[in-house]
Design a protein around this nucleic acid. Structure first.
Length: 585
RNA sequence: GGCCCCGUAGCUCAGGGGAUAGAGCGACAGCCUUCUAAGCUGUUGGUCGCAGGUUCGAAUCCUGCCGGGGUCGCCA
């Protein structure tokens, strides 16, 4: 179904048939021989680089090799034209019959077209993992969408994917949260409160306070923190996670696993952070030593002391890392190591974490840790997401860091809709900063990529509505469409659309391989552009229109092509988690 | 200072070993008594930050600089 892979096989078989060998008679390495779509349509449908790659090992002239290969390939009945061009490219043009047969296969395959056919390994994608201390901030949005789309993409490419959220419910932050909620509890009991600096002031804790007051009455009033902290913390975190899940659901993000950091120490398996450290110690990667003070600004409370260090430099980190704080508790890194060890033990050799760019300095040590706890068997890839800047009609949206004045994820989704948020978050490489304009993303114009792509899908549906009205005799089911005379699709716009469709499987594969879901968004934009462009040509040239009542046979063939476009648009949008509407409203 | 990311058209960005580097916006010029729903077509515009290196071939890979951002033990 991937025509580039198909002809790649044919080219390699042809080379074998020609008996090509290296200059010394040894077999050739054909791994660099590829069949690709040429950038310029004037160069045909397929470009073969074999002659250039093999010229040196064979000790021959590349153009002469290309001509020899061309002579053999010209006998292929699916190839209409061949030419040798440039430094030794062999360009191929396919017959209308081949394109028609290809299209029939796409329509028959439907939404499975482009889906990975060979099973690939299990992958764990961890994303969002926001602290459970408040509602989702717009800053979490990009990582959530990128992670979710990447997970969808990997699944589509054939991986067994688990979407995971690591709840940071241990450590000082959640104690602060609990104290903040306790204040709201006192408030609910009628006390007048002032929220000190450093605690969470947001209104979202008021309902929690009310619930606590209703549930526990005076029991936690005027009592030492030690009596209520655990209870309040647990209740508050639970409530926060309910809120966060709802926020994520509004963004069409659903995780398979929510993993509690705290459970690493309090679960039935005992202290698994200690166990992870022991694993590193058994591997000879722990030692007692001192660290150099950090360069740049020296922390005020820096003290030079002997401590237990993880030899992360053995796995590529810059310096060795402490796993214990001076008070004896574990660092966040220690917990994270235990967590990634858990993922490894659950069978994930391929792990992906999605982080904000401000955590970039943490990547090396985490990769080192994953290497260390798996004896080098598991690997971690970290995708860093850059900041999103918010605009409204070109003007930056001011976001005060003060309490409660931040833009929540829910604010954004409610205003512009989940589709616009998701698509725009993916219409940029994740490691590049992103501008998000509330006004622009809801515009109904070609300048708005979300609209442009969704409209393309709606337009395909519209074409079928017209076809049913104008040509009621045509069988527009998939089974009927593949019986159309598809070899009639010979116009450059039609060939162009089929060539774009043909690239879908390789785009999926490359994007999955590179962990870059944005490539799907850009591909869909290109495909939409091809469709709209060809559609517009029909304004001046009515004979090119998809639906021509005077020419039912050609119309039938074109409708098959439109169906294929619709299917690929729908598949791609599904990977992105964006709706594929049948009409724009 | 160390490390990470980025540097491509006036602007926002694609392209991550192949041929003459692309798209949108902007600007400029036409078309739009049309019809297939929210315009269309064309033109303009680039020493791919700089300098070396690898390669038949480099915007792409490597090294070193320059510029912008991020980050730099016991925050998560």
């Amino acid at each position: 179904m991937d025509i580039f892979a198909d002809f790649g096989d044919r080219v390699r078989a042809t080379i074998a048939r020609l008996g090509w060998t290296a200059a010394d008679g040894a077999p050739l390495d054909l791994s660099r021989v590829v069949v690709e779509p040429p950038r310029d349509a004037a160069h045909g449908d397929l470009a073969v680089n074999a002659a250039m790659v093999l010229a040196k090992p064979m000790g021959k002239n590349p153009r002469a090799l290309a001509i020899e290969l061309m002579g053999e390939l010209a006998a292929d009945p699916d190839i209409a034209e061949t030419e040798v061009a440039g430094p030794g490219f062999l360009n191929l043009r396919l017959t209308p019959a081949y394109w028609g047969a290809f299209l029939a296969r796409v329509v028959a395959a439907g939404r499975s077209y482009g889906r990975g056919t060979v099973p690939r390994g299990a992958v764990n994608v961890e994303y969002v993992s926001a602290n459970p201390t408040g509602p989702m901030h717009v800053g979490h949005c990009r990582g959530a969408v990128v992670g979710d789309a990447l997970a969808n993409l990997l699944a589509f490419a054939g991986h067994a994917v688990t979407k995971e959220y690591y709840i940071n419910d241990a450590g000082a932050q959640v104690d602060v949260l609990a104290r903040s909620a306790h204040l709201r509890y006192l408030e609910a009991l009628g006390e007048t409160i002032t929220i000190p600096e450093g605690l969470y002031p947001g209104d979202y804790l008021k309902p929690i306070g009310a619930v606590l007051a209703a549930r526990y009455g005076d029991a936690f009033r005027d009592r030492p923190e030690s009596e209520w902290l655990d209870t309040v913390r647990t209740a508050t975190i639970d409530a926060m996670m309910v809120m966060i899940r709802a926020d994520l659901a509004a963004l069409n993000v659903v995780h398979d696993v929510f993993f509690s950091e705290k459970s690493l120490q309090t679960g039935p398996a005992g202290d698994r952070v200690a166990e992870a450290i022991a694993t590193l110690r058994d591997a000879g990667l722990m030692y007692e030593g001192r660290l150099e003070p950090p360069k740049g600004q020296l922390p005020e409370d820096w003290e030079d002391r002997e401590q237990t260090l993880f030899r992360s430099t053995a796995y590529g980190d810059d310096v060795d890392r402490p796993l214990m704080k001076s008070d004896g508790s574990y660092t966040y890194f220690a917990s994270d190591i235990a967590y990634h060890l858990d993922k490894y033990r659950r069978g994930f050799r391929d792990q992906i974490d999605i982080w904000g760019a401000d955590h970039g300095g943490y990547v090396k040590r985490m990769k080192a840790a994953v290497g260390a706890i798996s004896g080098g068997e598991a690997s971690l890839d970290v995708e860093l997401c850059q900041l999103v800047k918010l605009y409204r009609a070109g003007e930056p949206v001011k976001m005060s860091k003060r309490s409660g004045d931040f833009v929540t994820l829910r604010d954004v989704v409610d205003e512009v809709g989940v589709d616009a948020v998701r698509f725009m978050m993916l219409f940029r490489k994740s490691d590049a900063p992103l501008d998000f304009d509330f006004q622009k993303v809801t515009e109904q114009s070609k300048d708005n990529p979300v609209f442009y792509v969704q409209y393309a899908h709606a337009r395909t549906a519209s074409v079928f509505v017209q076809a049913r009205e104008g040509l009621p005799g045509l069988d527009l089911s998939d089974e009927g469409l593949v019986t159309a005379p598809l070899e009639r699709l010979v116009d450059s716009g039609e060939i162009g659309l089929m060539k774009r469709i043909a690239q879908w499987p390789r785009v999926v594969e490359a994007a999955a391989e590179a962990h870059e879901p944005h490539r799907i968004a850009f591909f869909l934009h290109d495909l939409a552009s091809d469709l709209h462009g060809h559609w517009n040509r029909g304004k001046d040239l009515p004979q090119l229109r998809f639906v021509n009542v005077d020419d039912p046979l050609s119309s039938h063939a074109r409708l098959a092509m439109v169906r294929a476009v619709a299917v690929v648009l729908a598949s791609g949008l599904a990977v992105l988690g964006v709706n594929a509407p049948d009409e724009m409203r």
